[in-house]
């Protein structure tokens, strides 16, 4: 018991301390590293936001979505349209969140009545239909060639290079989105997501409408996806129908599960994976990327169902089991290290 209490106290200050260290590192990083590294890290922040949105609907609310790429695409196109037409930045950003959110809500109003596979199929329709639509609306989207923009240059009073300035803008927005989402999924809304995911009948008997909860989850996911589309255009300065393709959606699902579904930190790890794997695999053999990532996903599903984020807990669990096996049968019942009680947000108790 005493051991658990000490751990609890340690956890109380170690988490904010860790967050502070990470924040300081993130602020200092672009000042010392190369533009290439800055670009990669900024891209990670973009996809971390996209995966966070996917996590809200799939990880927390337990509804399969194979359409997240469509919202990134819409967000990026809205941002591109806004920039080329000289809209104020704030207005563009708000519309980037609003428009995909509305699309997501409309789809969810019809789709949230369905379960599991039917839902997966309806969400597949978004990227599958969205790609030819984007090609068709070439006045707005630039058709198959895509849309190249040049924006978010550092203002004259800032002595930063393009990549550094964009890094700070993107990472700051991403941090705010993460903070808001974290608070949301740890509060009342997050608990209603969890109960709808685990048992709809129980949710209903507690006065929580599964239908409304699912629509809310989809709307949030698409809004966050739209925000990541804005960030995507900010970093890459280019978007095309490829951004909202079905392949992107599949890769996002793969990355989310590998990072850890239903976990805030898992979204970050998933984004690191999403950005790094093509780079690393490209150094070996680009044609092996799919092979590696499929094999890795299945490996994770087998040995680490909670994703990379659960690796420390899993290692601890295995160590404890080994220690217990060697110890006498009369074990301290209070020492329950490695038994996750609250797993939905990736925290160990």
């Amino acid at each position: 018991m005493a051991g658990a209490l000490v751990r609890l106290r340690a956890a109380r200050w170690s988490r904010p301390a860790l967050a502070l260290v990470v924040a300081v590192l993130l602020v200092l990083l672009p000042l010392v590293s190369s533009p290439y590294v800055n670009y990669q890290v900024t891209t990670m922040a973009v996809f971390a936001v996209a995966l966070l949105g996917l996590n809200v609907v799939m990880g927390y609310a337990g509804q399969v979505s194979l359409g997240q790429s469509a919202f990134i695409g819409i967000g990026a196109y809205v941002a591109g349209y806004g920039t080329t037409h000289g809209w104020p930045l704030l207005l563009t950003f708000l519309l980037c969140c609003l428009l995909p959110g509305v699309v997501g809500m409309l789809v969810a109003l019809a789709a949230a009545r369905l379960r599991g596979l039917a839902l997966a199929m309806v969400t597949i329709a978004l990227p599958i239909v969205g790609t030819p639509v984007a090609k068709r609306l070439s006045d707005v989207t630039g058709g198959s060639q895509g849309l190249t923009v040049s924006w978010l240059d550092p203002p004259s009073w800032v002595a930063l290079a393009d990549d550094q300035w964009r890094y700070y803008v993107v990472v700051a927005i991403a941090a705010v989105v993460f903070l808001l989402t974290r608070n949301l999924v740890r509060g009342r809304v997050g608990r209603s997501f969890a109960i709808v995911r685990d048992n709809e009948a129980v949710a209903l008997s507690m006065g929580i409408s599964p239908y409304r909860t699912k629509v809310l989850a989809f709307t949030l996911a698409s809004t966050i996806g739209g925000a990541s589309g804005f960030l995507y255009l900010a970093v890459v300065q280019y978007t095309s129908p490829e951004t909202l393709s079905f392949g992107t959606s599949i890769n996002l699902v793969v990355a989310m599960v590998i990072g850890g579904s239903g976990s805030i930190a898992g979204a970050v790890l998933g984004a690191v994976y999403y950005v790094l794997v093509p780079v690393l695999a490209g150094q070996l053999d680009a044609s092996r990327t799919a092979l590696l990532s499929g094999a890795f996903l299945l490996l994770v599903l087998f040995v680490l169902p909670g994703g990379l984020v659960s690796l420390p807990r899993r290692v601890q669990q295995l160590l404890t089991r080994r220690r217990r096996r060697s110890a006498t049968p009369s074990d301290d019942p209070g020492d329950r290290t490695g038994t996750p009680v609250l797993t939905s947000d990736g925290r160990t108790p």
Binding site: I250, V254, A290, L291, S293, G294, A295, L297, L301
Partner: peptide, 8 residues
Amino acid sequence: GLLVLVSG
């Protein structure tokens, strides 16, 4: 995952 792996 199988889809990605097998086509890979």
